[in-house]
Amino acid sequence: MSMIGRYLRLSAAELERAALEPEWALAFVERLDDESAEADGGRARGGWARLHETGKAWQALDFLLRRREFPVDLVHGEEELPGAEDWGYGPPCRIAPDRVRLAVAALAALDPGRLTEGVAPADLAEARVYPQSLWEAEDSLHLVTAEYRALSDFLRAVATRRHGVLVWIE
């Protein structure tokens, strides 16, 4: 089993409901996962997507964004969902709509090539970034930049709708 980063797009009203009823948010995610499985992995893409995953690149993204002093914690979220139980490796955290918009502005200013500038896979291995076996390949940073682009696209669609997200590691 791998650890993966996950995101759920929610409106401001849905974020409030999730804060009051964290079990509703978990049931919502489970329903979306079930619908995706039934559709043979045909999860909505682009601006319609409710769920997004960064796969195993989550910790590398965190490492690289922290190096750039990124203003929003995109990997772990910013505020723990009150009363939420463990969704994998801890409870989910939320990023409010205004913070998503701030993140999108910062993402627009950080070209994917600059994200990994001055970093080699060996640096990630030395920092013990999960999964360490991934950093044995010389071209492994391409995976991280691809996930960075996909996360940027997802969050841009979230911000356009003035929504927020729940974030968790599963």
Rank of each mutant, 00 (worst) to 15 (best):
M1A: 13
S2P: 15
M3T: 08
Y7A: 00
L8H: 00
A12D: 07
E14M: 02
L15R: 08
L15K: 07
A18H: 11
A18E: 09
W24A: 11
A25R: 10
F28A: 07
F28P: 04
E30T: 04
E30C: 08
D33P: 04
D33I: 14
S36G: 15
S36H: 04
D40G: 08
D40M: 13
G41K: 01
G46I: 04
G46A: 14
A49Y: 11
L51T: 14
L51P: 07
L51Q: 07
H52Q: 10
T54I: 09
T54E: 06
G55W: 03
A57D: 15
Q59F: 05
Q59I: 03
D62G: 10
D62I: 02
F63R: 01
F63W: 07
L64W: 04
R67C: 09
R68N: 13
L74A: 12
L74D: 02
H76N: 11
G77A: 02
E80D: 09
L81I: 00
L81G: 06
P82V: 10
A84Y: 05
G88L: 00
Y89R: 05
P91F: 00
P92W: 03
C93W: 10
A96F: 08
P97A: 06
P97V: 06
D98M: 04
D98H: 12
R101I: 03
R101T: 13
L102T: 15
V104N: 10
A106D: 13
L107Y: 14
L107T: 01
A108E: 15
A109N: 13
L110A: 09
L110M: 07
L110I: 12
D111M: 09
T116E: 06
V119E: 10
L124A: 10
L124H: 13
L124G: 12
P131Y: 08
W135P: 12
A137H: 14
E138L: 11
L141Y: 01
T145Q: 00
A146I: 03
R149G: 08
A150K: 04
D153M: 13
L155A: 09
L155Q: 07
V158F: 03
A159Q: 12
H163Y: 14
H163F: 10
V165W: 05
L166Y: 06
V167F: 02
W168P: 01
E170L: 07
